[in-house]
């Protein structure tokens, strides 16, 4: 049984400009201890998917229209608040994108770190602070016993992200959702933070969902990757297969647009056109207007289907065997 099973999740935003289908029928699962990557461009629904699972979608304007997210037989999308409070922050926790703004500027690091322990494990304050110091040491903050007394503004960006990771992992959760945890950091710190998440995952056996728009980060980190486009999953495969044997034309186009893989001096490859307007209903494949392989058939509804064991794609022509893509 997977740790988390998401079925047909649809999160819509009812805005003045119409209904924005930010997440439109997403299904996936993650096993215990697995590392799953979610990639896609801005606005493809990666973050909204995870925010929906955590119950962090602002309602209104957001609404979860349908779907199920089974975590240990509890449906995260429809359970009572009291149940969600027990899971959130204890068994599933989250690291946010911008460490500069994810810590309360008016609270000491120790109080913020100890907070999950105080509310979820009912520890004594002193005991919680001890644990917090140990957690801070584990994420590589030097002189933790002293620095834990500081306020967030006294920490650098990388250090704050370490604090966030320590805070997320202090209750030893079964699932960690990392929403672009390295986007706001510079490259050297990025590598350290990813190493750290990997190390902590190894020690605690935590499953990790890593959201990123950086294909390189995901390639080096995840066992399995989902590619999202316009609120849907277009491809899902083990990392290596996804990168070396792309099935969906969108995935292939993504791989082709990695600058480092292109010959020096050549014009950079870009995908023509823009992502579709999510406030208009889309039937069939959302990538049709930008796809060089699109045919009339692509406008009919399509499901994410396995074309090889463990490798699923949402391209009808691939599913029918009409199309063979080379990287």
């Amino acid at each position: 049984m997977p740790l988390l099973q998401v079925n047909d999740l649809r999160t819509y935003f009812h805005t003045r400009n119409g209904v924005v289908r930010a997440v439109d029928g997403v299904s996936f699962n993650i096993q215990k201890g697995e590392t799953l990557g979610i990639v896609g461009e801005s606005g493809s629904g990666k973050s909204v998917t995870c925010y929906s699972l955590m119950g962090l979608i602002p309602k209104p304007p957001g609404r979860i229209e349908s779907g199920q997210a089974l975590f240990d037989d509890v449906d995260l999308l429809h359970c009572r608040d009291s149940q969600l409070l027990k899971i959130r922050g204890k068994r599933i926790s989250m690291v946010f994108q911008d460490p500069m703004t994810s810590l309360n500027p008016y609270m000491r690091i120790q109080d913020q770190l100890a907070e999950p322990l105080l509310i979820h494990e009912q520890l004594e304050r002193k005991e919680a602070v001890h644990r917090a110091i140990r957690a801070l040491e584990e994420v590589g903050v030097p002189d933790a016993a002293r620095r834990i007394r500081s306020y967030p503004h006294e920490f650098s960006g990388g250090m704050r992200q370490r604090v966030m990771i320590a805070m997320a992992l202090i209750t030893k959760p079964e699932l960690l959702i990392a929403d672009e945890p390295t986007t706001a950091l510079d490259v050297t710190v990025q590598a350290q933070i990813l190493e750290l998440i990997k190390k902590m995952q190894h020690e605690l056996g935590t499953a990790v969902i890593l959201i990123s728009h950086d294909l390189g980060v995901v390639a080096g980190f995840c066992q399995r990757v989902l590619v999202m486009y316009a609120g849907r999953i277009v491809e899902c495969a083990p990392t290596e297969r996804l990168y070396y044997h792309p099935k969906h034309p969108y995935n292939r186009a993504l791989q082709k647009s990695i600058p480092a893989l292109q010959p020096k001096g050549a014009d950079l490859y870009t995908i023509p056109g823009l992502p579709p307007d999510l406030s208009k209903p889309i039937t069939g494949c959302a990538f049709v207007p930008r796809c060089e392989f699109a045919r009339e058939i692509c406008k009919s509804p399509v499901e994410l289907t396995d074309v090889e064991p463990g490798h699923a794609t949402a391209c009808l022509r691939i599913q029918k065997g009409e199309l063979e893509l080379e990287r």
């Binding site: 027990k86 959130r88 926790s93 989250m94 946010f96 994810s102 907070e115 999950p116 966030m164």
Partner: peptide
């Protein structure tokens, strides 16, 4: 974001407002 983070940590509304 830190208020969102507090929600994600499983804090109750009252605690979020007060603390």
């Amino acid at each position: 974001e830190f208020i969102e983070a507090a929600h994600a940590l499983g804090l109750r509304k009252r605690r979020i407002i007060l603390r």
